[in-house]
Computed example of a mutant assay.
Amino acid sequence: MITLKILIIIPAYNEEKNIKQVVDNLIHNYPQYDYVIINDCSSDNTKKILEKNNYNHIDLPVNLGIGGGVQTGYKYALEKGYDIAIQMDGDGQHDPKFFSDIIDSIINGEADIVIGSRFIEKDGFQSTKIRRIGINFLSNLIKIVCGKRVKDVTSGYRAVNRKFIEIYAKEYAQDYPEPEAIVNAAMHNARILEYPVIMSERLGGESSISHFKSVYYMIKVSLAIILYRITFNKRRI
């Protein structure tokens, strides 16, 4: 029987209120998975907590944003020879009880990427109304530009196989990257599936995307998706 190496990538920025509970849950209840925390130059006590508890982590010397943090995790996964990488947030929104379900289709060779989706069975925290409108818009835009329908395009709860560990280690959007990562995957002919999960509101702290930033987010990501699609073939030459 072949044992696959599976890594949990946890990007963290100013998660002093959440990170210990998140990681202790993994260590005590899901020891079959390895993990790495990417501390994105937090300005609070996140680094001290990671060091005090001897958690496996990487401290970035400057703040790279969520995309840079996640890409660092993929670079680590590639260097260490992992077969599957699972992204989960450090704020407690993502329940690890879904790990085995999310990776099952990858293990069986049915999918390259599996996204944990709030919007299939619509249980648990569904985000705010304005964000759901924006998510639906981006979902339709991605369907138009690359032919893939993904409902929960901003979900940071996802798993990828070895092929996309390699791809994302080399190229990953730096600012609000989740929708762009889907377009990237689609352009590389990924088999993308969604699996219904239940998400919670963050345990503590504040989201990096305020209501004001939501408008900026929509404009920036929409333009980035269109530009990525237009320039993809040129960048491969």
Rank of each mutant, 00 (worst) to 15 (best):
R191T: 13
G90L: 01
N53V: 14
A224N: 02
I2R: 15
E15C: 10
I133L: 10
E16P: 12
S208Y: 06
A159Q: 00
P11Q: 04
L26W: 08
A85S: 15
K20S: 13
S42E: 11
L60W: 02
A77R: 09
V62F: 04
P61M: 11
I66K: 05
R191G: 08
L138M: 13
G116E: 01
S208C: 09
I133S: 13
V114W: 03
H188F: 06
F125G: 03
G73E: 04
I237D: 15
V145Y: 02
I37G: 08
E178W: 04
E201S: 13
E79K: 03
I6D: 03
Q71A: 06
D40W: 08
K129N: 12
G81H: 08
Y13I: 10
G156T: 10
L203K: 07
I165Y: 08
I182N: 00
P179F: 11
S210C: 05
K234T: 15
I182M: 04
Y82W: 12
A12H: 08
N140I: 15
V215P: 05
S100T: 15
I167V: 09
I103W: 03
K48L: 14
E51H: 11
N184H: 15
D152P: 02
M1I: 06
I225N: 10
N54A: 15
T72A: 12
F125Q: 12
Y157A: 08
G69Y: 00
F212P: 12
S200L: 12
I120G: 04
I115M: 05
I192S: 02
L78Q: 09
N29K: 05
V145Q: 06
G156W: 00
Y13V: 11
T231V: 15
S100P: 13
K129Y: 07
E194P: 06
G109N: 06
I106C: 03
G69Q: 00
K143A: 08
V160C: 11
Y172K: 05
A12K: 00
V150K: 01
V197S: 01
Y55L: 02
I165N: 08
Y30I: 07
Q87E: 15
A169L: 11
I27M: 07
D104L: 12
V183S: 08
V150E: 01
D89F: 13
I37R: 11
E16L: 13
I115L: 04
I113W: 01
G205K: 05
N18R: 10
E79M: 01
Y172M: 06
P11A: 06
K220S: 01
I226S: 06
F137P: 01
L138K: 09
Y74T: 02
I2A: 14
D44F: 04
M88F: 03
E166V: 13
Y216N: 07
G156R: 03
I38N: 05
K20C: 12
A111W: 07
V221S: 00
A169Q: 08
Y216D: 05
D40N: 09
L60N: 07
E110Y: 03
F99W: 02
F164Y: 00
S207W: 04
R132T: 09
V153E: 02
I225Q: 13
R229Q: 10
R131H: 13
E206T: 11
K17P: 10
K97T: 13
T72L: 09
K17G: 14
K47T: 09
Y13E: 07
D83G: 03
